[in-house]
């Protein structure tokens, strides 16, 4: 389903990054990095409306010929970015949402791990496995 997942800290540095095809990782990093522009824009404009219960899901940040980039921001400004192959037409918005929700949930689990220092890059193997699980949609 997803080809790449990135978790970006509140300082915009990557905390976790994975993609199905490791050879393409660099290219995806560029894509995810540029999507942060849109995330920031959305967050700053979202503040103006001042709704208390902010929608965490930001929707599609931008699309490329080959890929679509979706964003999700937790209340602590941790950004989840999912890159989806745009030829995958079967993927609906709802499925993306649910992927983000799952991702958020396992991220929260990971942060709860006393051995994980918040704001450090995530290196947990089980976390990696879970993310891969979500990405492949299995």
């Amino acid at each position: 389903m997803a080809v790449c997942v990135g978790i970006i800290g509140k300082d915009n540095s990557p905390k976790y990054f994975t993609c199905l095809n490791p050879d393409e990782e660099l290219g995806f990093q560029y894509k995810v990095l540029s999507s942060l522009d849109v995330v920031e824009e959305k967050l700053s404009s979202g503040n103006k409306t001042g709704s208390d219960m902010r929608e965490l899901y930001l929707g599609m940040l931008y699309s490329l010929e080959t890929h679509k980039v979706y964003g999700y921001v937790t209340n602590t400004k941790i950004k989840f970015i999912i890159v989806v192959d745009s030829t995958n037409t079967a993927l609906r918005d709802n499925e993306i949402r649910s992927m983000f929700r799952k991702l958020h949930s396992i991220y929260a689990d990971n942060v709860c791990n006393p051995f994980y220092i918040p704001d450090e890059p995530i290196t947990s193997k089980s976390f990696d496995r879970s993310v891969k699980h979500i990405m492949t949609g299995a």
């Binding site: 915009n12 990557p14 990093q29 560029y30 990095l33």
Partner: peptide, 13 residues
């Protein structure tokens, strides 16, 4: 910019 954002791999590139 890469360094500011802490994208080390990209910065290295």
């Amino acid at each position: 910019t890469f360094e500011q954002d802490g994208w080390r791999e990209l910065a290295a590139q």
